[in-house]
Design a protein around this nucleic acid. Structure first.
Length: 557
RNA sequence: UACCCGAUGGUGUAAUUGGUAACACAACAGGUUUUGGUCCUGUCGUUCCAGGUUCAAGUCCUGGUCGGGUAGCCA
């Protein structure tokens, strides 16, 4: 794993003997699915014990019963395991600490460091002051300890209404750090919790939970994102004012931002609930479950997180970097197949009627161990519509009248005739083949610039192919006034392709490269036995598209 | 106009902790190729600004500029 400032700190702590091992944690709130941004934090935390003595805990930060669900708890574990990480015995829930946290709240009251507030939420806001003006003390701030104890107990017994009271720490209403202006410790929520059921009707806030949970688990380095930087003094205040067994250290780093996508759980939830996508695992979603369904590999995500690095400045990573990591992994490991996405019929006039040859094709060129397969070839084929032009531009190496091209792993063919419909559209091509060119080369060694893919019309399997484009149009949809207005109406195009017959048995979840097109994954939701549905994972780099657009510009000028 | 944090190519991270600014992506230009894929080669920077310390500053000091975060009974 690449070096970063956090690993430097850890190395230094280990070398100085401040710790014998590193204990870290990944603390998701189970209120949504994990996304690629979480992967950065997961790789950082779970990657540490791979290089240093120690361990990484998985801890669900489940202090808000109104937003959290068991479905998310399970999905989160599946996603982390899929990435290839393991927390062993160390699965924890903040809700397991509710008893201890409650005791510590009473401890603070007894010490005169916490009080029960009777002001309304709105009044509390008024008393808090602003970013530039200090707050004022609440009239309830100096309530006697015994009364605080009694009121807090009444909160706990459910005798007080939601919103009527909260427990607050007594710190400093004039602090320039808003988090220190008597933060809320406990609020009343008469809601059933996904793990503790109806045991509690008061729940601790994040700030009162996180550091103490770290302390109880013996966390040495508590890594979180930048927006918690201002919370660190409060994190430390609790550790200093409570009889905790251990003293963890919070270190903040910048979360991942990716262009052309949104990364907030709130926005992702909106996409799901408003039906803009099929669900959390829609292949267009930046969720780990969506990316997995799309065919993205765990290896690619881990390499991506590694190369992105960890630092403290906000940044926007180009999605092209993720695509690069993906292609790198997929290129090395995906078996090749031929699939014609937009078919055009081709008849080889001089090829014997009824003859079928089994052409041998490499599964991964250059990787002999990956083996070969047989692909049936016959007189009538399909090729890609875009691989034929009646009027071809400069530098067009594919099929055009009179230009010899290679049918990959098969024969050289030359177009002799173009058949059009009444609308003038090309509907069929006729050509002649060179019987001496079987396999795709000839003894005379003549050069053929273009090589195109094909399938035999009589043998091809018609298969659904789902072509995905970016979900959003702009560089940074999160910065748009309404990100939903930025949704790409063409993010999904469903095609019926003609593919190699062998693909009929492709297992859901298996990945292939459709030669000259891209990487595809058999969809786990829509595929039927014998009827695979393919998701575009990522396209191949397309330098012809660049050449063509450049030629067009030249022609204009 | 409060407090906290940050600033290195188009993008993201490095820089032996004061000693020749490196790696990857992108872009561009070539080469190889039975995928216009892969692979290979090359091109692309006054380290935010101004002072200061020093033989030597991306790194240390002072002042500024710009960007981000913070006023939930969310996390």
């Amino acid at each position: 794993m690449a070096e970063n400032f956090i690993r430097d700190i850890i190395k230094d702590d280990l070398a100085a003997g401040r710790h014998q091992q590193v204990v870290v944690r990944f603390p998701p709130e189970p209120n949504g699915y994990l996304h690629i941004g979480h992967a950065k934090a997961i790789c950082l935390n779970f990657g540490l014990p791979e290089d240093f003595p120690g361990r990484c805990h998985l801890r669900f930060d489940d202090t808000n019963p109104t937003k959290e669900e068991m479905e998310y708890v399970e999905a989160i574990q599946e996603d982390i395991r899929w990435l290839g990480f393991d927390w062993g015995e160390h699965l924890y829930y903040a809700s397991d600490y509710f008893d201890q946290l409650h005791e510590w709240a009473i401890h603070l009251i007894r010490e005169g460091k916490a009080y029960v507030e009777s002001l309304s939420a709105e009044q509390i806001r008024e008393y808090r002051g602003t970013l530039t003006e200090p707050g004022r003390n609440s009239p309830f701030r100096d309530r006697p300890i015994e009364e605080n104890l009694e009121l807090f107990a009444a909160m706990g017994r459910g005798e007080l209404e939601e919103g009527s009271h909260v427990l607050r720490a007594k710190i400093d209403m004039a602090s320039p750090n808003m988090n220190m202006r008597d933060p809320t410790l406990y609020r009343i929520r008469k809601a059933s919790h996904h793990r503790t059921g109806d045991k509690w009707c008061i729940y601790p806030m994040y700030d009162f939970t996180h550091g103490q949970s770290d302390a109880m688990e013996g966390i040495t380095h508590s890594l979180c994102s930048l927006e918690f930087e201002n919370h660190r003094p409060l994190y430390d205040w609790f550790l200093e004012n409570l009889p905790v067994p251990h003293r963890p250290r919070q270190i903040e780093f910048a979360r991942l931002n990716l262009n052309r996508t949104v990364m907030s759980k709130r926005k992702l939830l909106q996409l799901v609930e408003n039906g803009h996508v099929e669900g959390w695992n829609d292949p267009r979603m930046p969720t780990l479950s969506g990316m997995r369904r799309r065919g993205v590999t765990a290896t690619a995500i881990r390499n991506f997180c590694d190369v992105v690095g960890v630092a403290k400045r906000d940044s926007m990573v180009d999605i092209a970097l993720l695509e690069h990591c993906l292609r790198e992994d997929l290129n090395a490991h995906s078996p090749r197949r031929m699939a014609v996405l937009d078919p055009l019929k081709v008849v080889i006039d001089n090829y014997p009627e009824g003859q079928v040859e089994q052409m041998e094709a490499e599964n991964i060129p250059g990787v002999a161990e990956a083996g070969t397969r047989k692909v049936p070839f016959s007189k009538v084929l399909y090729i890609e519509k875009e691989d034929f032009r009646e009027q071809a531009p400069r530098k067009y190496f594919r099929m055009k009248p009179g230009q010899e091209v290679r049918l990959r792993y098969a024969y050289y063919v030359t177009c002799t005739e173009v058949v059009k419909n009444d609308a003038g559209e090309v509907v069929e091509i006729h050509c002649r083949y060179d019987p001496e060119s079987k396999g795709g080369n000839t003894a005379d060694g003549r050069r053929v610039k273009g090589t195109i893919h094909w399938v035999s019309a009589d043998h091809a399997l018609a298969a659904e192919v789902r072509q995905y484009g970016p979900l959003f149009l702009s560089e940074n949809p999160a910065a748009e006034e309404d990100f939903l207005q930025d949704l790409n109406p063409d993010s999904l195009t469903v095609l019926t392709a003609q593919v190699e017959p062998g693909l009929a048995e492709a297992e859901p979840g298996s990945r292939f490269q459709f030669e000259r097109k891209g990487y595809y994954c058999v969809d786990t939701a829509h595929s039927q036995p014998g009827k695979p549905v393919f998701n575009l994972t990522v396209g191949l780099r397309d330098s012809w598209a660049k050449i063509e657009s450049k030629e067009r510009q030249k022609a204009k000028a």
